[in-house]
């Protein structure tokens, strides 16, 4: 079972003792959502500046290494660059550089930069959330936030439990996948996807066994959960208590001031 050589990094939560780590997950979830809203409600660069400065303070407080932030941005870098380029070329206005029928305009550069900055900050802020919040705490926070929606039929408890079980079994399945890759390679299988015509040959030796394993596990897990008296959300108590403390109060006030400042500054100057 304990196949060595697992090289796939799992999870991106970095445990720490910072004030940001210590916040209630609900505070952080709400703040991240509010930050996203603020990002798209602001007008002008002054708002961006205030939000960026605030985000930098949060990141500094959290003590998250820059390399992790970079890693969370990297996969979407192409999207950011594309956004910038398309905006720069497509916005009508005073040309800066002309390329045949296309030209980069001053307004385009400004719009592109504005949009790209905001998208980038959205990615960084959500990375800041997951880097400083344990996945378990995150699911708890989500369950709480979805709680009010229970009345309209949203199964908040079940959603949270599904997320917990997924978190619990992803490492297990990754390890099994890792073992399978090695085992099939030992049989001489070519698992690279170089030749699209041989896609099935590369994928089936992994997918079929992984499905069989997962279904068996799911079956056994259901029996084990029932044996441990699981019967849905009814009459359940919680081991983890979400507790918002003084720090959360302080953080909430700071956040409100920050967002209001960012939103109003553009409007005031514009007026």
């Amino acid at each position: 079972m304990s196949g060595p050589g697992l090289t796939i990094p799992i999870g991106q939560f970095i445990p720490g003792e910072s004030p940001v780590h210590g916040l209630d997950p609900r505070t952080k979830l709400v703040a991240t959502l509010a930050f996203a809203v603020a990002l798209f409600a602001i007008e002008g660069w002054s708002g961006v500046g205030i939000l960026a400065a605030g985000l930098a303070v949060v990141l500094a407080l959290a003590g998250v290494p820059a390399v992790y932030l970079w890693r969370s941005l990297r996969p979407l870098l192409i999207l950011l660059v594309l956004t910038f380029v398309i905006q720069a070329f497509s916005f009508p206005g005073e040309p800066v550089v002309g390329l045949g029928p296309f030209s980069i305009t001053r307004e385009g550069l400004s719009r592109g930069g504005f949009l790209t900055m905001r998208l980038g900050m959205l990615l960084v802020s959500s990375a800041a959330l997951t880097l400083t919040t344990a996945p378990v705490a995150l699911t708890d926070g989500i369950e709480w936030l979805l709680g009010p929606l229970r009345r309209v039929g949203v199964p908040s408890h079940e959603i949270a439990l599904m997320m917990t079980i997924a978190l619990r079994f992803i490492p297990t399945l990754l390890r099994e996948l890792d073992d399978l890759i090695k085992a099939q390679k030992a049989r001489g299988a070519d698992l690279s996807l170089r030749d699209p015509r041989r896609l099935a040959d590369a994928v089936l030796p992994l997918v079929v066994p992984l499905f069989v394993l997962s279904f068996r596990r799911a079956d056994d897990l259901a029996v084990a959960m029932t044996s441990r008296c699981y019967r849905g959300a009814v009459g359940r108590t919680r081991y983890r208590e979400l507790k918002a403390g003084a720090g959360d109060m302080l953080a909430s006030v700071a956040l409100v001031v920050w967002f209001v400042a960012a939103l109003s500054v553009g409007r005031l100057w514009g007026a």
Binding site: V136, T164, R168, D220, L221, A224, R240
Partner: peptide
């Protein structure tokens, strides 16, 4: 035991 562990941490 792998199939009987539900929580994402030992205490959970």
């Amino acid at each position: 035991p792998e199939d009987q562990i539900v929580g994402a941490s030992v205490e959970d």
